[in-house]
Design a protein around this nucleic acid. Sequence first.
DNA 1: TCGCTTGTTGATGG
DNA 2: GCCATCAACAAGCG
Length: 266
Amino acid sequence: MPELPDVEHFRQVFRLHAAGKAVAGLEADPTILRNVQAGALARALIGQRFEDPGRHGKWLVCRTGGPTLLLHFGMTGDLIWSEDEPERHRHDRLILAFVEGGELRYRNMRKLGGVWLAHDDVELAAVLGSLGPDALAIGRRDFLERLSRRRGALKAALMDQSFVAGIGNILADEILWQARLHPRRAIQSLTPGELAVLHRVVHRVLRQASEGYDYVERRRSWLSHVRGHPGAACPRCRSPLSRTVTAGRTTYFCPVCQAGGFDALP
DNA sequence: TCGCTTGTTGATGG
DNA sequence: GCCATCAACAAGCG
């Protein structure tokens, strides 16, 4: 699930149901807590009132007047409001109950990602400090300037959270497909025209994916909609998709639309 | 049993 | 120092 658009959805869930409310109780699976113990987390948050949540890349940043709760959703995380799903689930790892009623559930089957607590901006920076600018918020000039300082394969840079924060494996493939660029294309070989297209597509894909829930289902003309299905063809030209490994992750691309053969890395 | 999975980190090697 | 690859983390599915 969670790349930037999914965490943006979680932010809406949090803002709609938890913002402005005071924490009455807290239950935590200790194996999901990353820099705090369950007792300390409860002491820090009970009685606090959440502000409007923020998001940076794939992180949900939940400030109160005092400490800040940080959620990362790994590959299988979710955020559920109790009215939408009355029954608790076995993989609900953090439960926040509110004075006003209702509970918010952080669910995570595989325990990649987790829950952090920051007491102040110094601790916040210790958790989020290595992230690059948010991929939806970054401007064209900053994006191109940062990219120009990198070498190597384009897809690896897009997925590197210290370069820009928020793009994962699925959306990296989507962005490259929409921009018609080969995943292993050498960054330094990109023309000014291709760079302009790339930034525009990054922004457009993230914005459109964030416009509602489940873009994989919703955006039928996208690569993501067919990606990984057996025998899948390019939604544009109907060529069979290629499957490779780039930057350690399974990569789907169209060998015709994204030929970009010249200067592609081996 | 093996391989695979929308994420991140640390070790290792070129 | 930079970049690529791989293992590990963990749990479920086919």
